[in-house]
Structures are given as structure tokens and as C-alpha cells.
Design a protein around this nucleic acid. Structure first.
Lengths: 207, 207
DNA sequence: AAAAGCAGACCGACAGCCTGTCGGTAAGAG
DNA sequence: CTCTTACCGACAGGCTGTCGGTCTGCTTTT
């Protein structure tokens, strides 16, 4: 039997199904047929709403990123909270959203999901950097940080932590700890603050 | 007619063909049939030597990385050259190798080649970081640099520059320049040297 | 040195999957 | 009643990986 719905609604149904499937079986491991079955629609319907499988991935990536940034932006604009605390909260926002179930991350990093991984990473980076960059800028103008390039400082910090702390979670507890300590140490240098001054607050970011 | 060769030789023939094809048409855009045609062998032969298409990519990645590191390691061990110059030379080694034809890079960064890109990047990172890390360590022990975490300093510097200067070559000349300046500035901070002291030598790395 | 044996290299048909297309069909708004 | 929007499912075309069988040249045997 044929059920007709608004385009937006169907699109979201498809994205919902795709999200679950991509996350559990991987992008390459999921066939369009799987999505069809899960949503309960015919082949043609899917290609009526999306022009290709990759198009679905793009839409999904955008949906997820947008949700992530909504929270982070709100925090970033809350002038009542001290600048550095806002940075910590922003990062927490992103971390939270990115381990829905924890299985997700493991899946995303399997080689089959290179494309999904790449798109997510790119999308997250391009969204997060301006937010954090703005906060660092604010910190500089308030005399908390010192750097001639606040935006690029953010770029460096975020890019590094993204690839390193996401990709390399297959490391020992001990190595992870020194890596974190080193990261904090280098963050302090990049932001031009005293050694050890960020340690307490930043350690909380990795729990 | 049937031509029999040593397994190693055939494998290399296949990798030679794959290298050219992957680079010109992309990984996803290259079918095993393309490789078959180019080498002039039958389907079964290919799968006799490699267990899958991805297996070919892995072997190729390894072959390329190994070639890259051979040069870099040699430079790194040449104690006659000052430490910092060695770092510069090492980086040059890698850059050189990675723009065979320049078309390569453009190709590698197309979304179709996410898997190839990811594997290359990972392989390069894991090989380069210890080399540069060692050099920084040497610099620290000679009093040229100051950092408690030389290895992780290298990790941060290389990871960042890898993803940023490789991926984002679709930026304006001007933006690129400030990005480079900022990178040098942050490098100086991470390595604990005076502002501006690395500028002259490092600018040469991006030409 | 010829015959027989053998393992490693090679072949190509084929199964099975998967993506995207297209002509046609139902449903609800106007 | 009509027209747009959403939907359907058969089908073409392409791709990967498999498998039984074949060839080749080296080794062993006689």
C-alpha cells in the first residue's frame, strides 16, 4: 500500500534510518537496499529525495553538525561565564554529542568508513574552529591569553586534538595520560599562559 | 598467451599500474578491471597475488611510505648538519615525494579517495613523527629547543601541518601566507624559542 | 638425459551484489 | 476534475571476489 508524506518528513525518516545503519554497519557496509527496507519505501522513492547515496551522507553530516554547533554556540555567547570556562563547556558539548552510544566512534574509525569519517571531521572542524577561535580572541582582549593569531591557535589546537584523541583511542591508559598532559602543556604555550595554569580545568575535558 | 613471472615481479607490476590509475582516476574510480587491462593479466591472477582491492591499496601505501622515509631517515641521521637544518631538509624530502606531478595531491583529496587519503595520511604520520620527534629531542639536549615533550611537540606540529596544508590548498594566496606565519609563530612557542627566530628558515619550507 | 611429478603462477566464466534510472501510478491540493 | 507531488519496482549496467581447471618450468627419478 502506498503512503504519501511531506518531502521533509520522508527525508528525515530516511536520514534517521541511515544514521542508525551507517553507525552500526558502516557507510560502505550499508547498501541503499538496507535503507529501503528499514524505512519501508521503494527504490525510486529514495532517489526521488536524494540524488545519490553520498548525498544522503552529506545531508546526515550536516544534520549532525548543526545539532552539535547549536549547543556550542549558545554556550559560547553566554557572557556570564568566564571565557575559559566557556571553552571547556564548548568542548564538552562536542564530545558529548560525538559519543552517542560509544559504539559510534569505534565504527566511524573503521577503514570502511573513511568517507564518513572525513566528512564528519571536516564539517566539525570548520564549525568548531571559529567558535573556539572567537573565544580565544575574547580571552586575548581581556588579557587572559597572549597570541598574535587567536584563530589559528584554535585551528591548531582543535585540528590536533580532533585527529589525535579521536583516532588514537586504541592506546594504553598510560600513554593517553602523557599525551593529554603534553597537550595541555603545549596549549599553555600556544595561548601564552603560565605553565600549569590550565591543567586543573583542562584535565576535566578528557573524562 | 600465458606469461609466467616471479610473484614479486608481478606484484610490483600490479602496484605500478595501480599507482598510476589510483592517482589519475582515484581509488574508487579505478576498477579492478582497469588494473587488469593495464597490466595485461586475468582476473584470477590479480586475486592470486592480492586478496582484495583494498589489499592492493595497503601494499601501495606501504611501498610509497617506505620510499619516503628512506630519504628522510638518511637526512635525520646526518650528524654533520645542524639539527634545525635537518628538520627542514626532512620536511622537504616528504613534500618532494608527495607531489609527484602535483596532480596527485589534487586527486588524493577528492572525496572519492577518502580511503586512500586516510591510509596515506596515517602511514605518513606514524613514520614522520618519530623522525622529527627525535630531531627535536636532539635539539632539546643541545639547548636549542625547550620543551618537556619533544615527541608530542612533533606530533602536534606534523599532524596540524599535514591536515591543514595538505587539505586546504583551496585557499587564497593571502590567507595561506598568514596561516604559514601563524604556524611558524606557534612552532616557535611550542619549541620554546624566541619569536621570529625560526621565520627565515621555515619560510623556505613552503615554496 | 628423458620421463614423471609437482607446486606455483595463471586463466576466464560466473555468481552475486549494488547503485542509479525511468516510465508509469496513486493521492491529495486547488 | 486536474495537476503537481510523492511514490513505485523492474531493470540495466557495473563491479568485486571465487573457483575449478590449465599451463609452465623446476625437481626428482630412473
Amino acid at each position: 500500500m502506498r503512503v504519501v508524506k511531506e518531502a521533509e518528513e520522508r527525508k528525515n525518516e530516511i536520514l534517521d534510518a541511515a544514521e542508525i545503519l551507517f553507525v552500526t554497519k558502516g557507510y560502505d557496509g550499508t547498501s541503499t537496499g538496507d535503507i529501503l527496507d528499514k524505512v519501508g519505501i521503494a527504490r525510486g522513492t529514495l532517489y526521488y529525495h536524494f540524488k545519490s547515496k553520498e548525498d544522503i551522507l552529506d545531508a546526515l553530516t550536516e544534520r549532525i553538525s548543526n545539532a552539535m554547533f547549536a549547543g556550542a554556540k549558545q554556550v559560547a555567547d553566554d557572557k556570564d561565564i568566564p571565557v575559559f570556562d566557556r571553552i571547556v563547556k564548548c568542548v564538552a558539548c562536542l564530545k558529548l554529542r560525538s559519543d552517542i552510544g560509544n559504539e559510534v566512534i569505534k565504527q566511524v574509525h573503521k577503514p570502511q568508513n573513511a568517507l564518513m569519517h572525513q566528512k564528519m571531521e571536516k564539517s566539525i572542524l570548520s564549525g568548531v574552529i571559529p567558535i573556539i577561535g572567537g573565544l580565544i580572541e575574547e580571552g586575548v582582549s581581556k588579557g587572559i591569553f597572549t597570541t598574535k593569531y587567536p584563530l589559528y591557535a584554535a585551528e591548531m589546537l582543535i585540528t590536533y586534538s580532533q585527529t589525535t584523541f579521536d583516532d588514537k583511542f586504541e592506546q594504553t591508559e598510560k600513554e593517553m595520560m602523557t599525551r593529554i598532559k603534553a597537550f595541555i602543556y603545549h596549549t599553555e604555550r600556544i595561548l601564552g599562559v603560565a605553565e600549569g595554569s590550565l591543567e586543573d580545568k583542562m584535565l576535566g575535558m578528557f573524562s
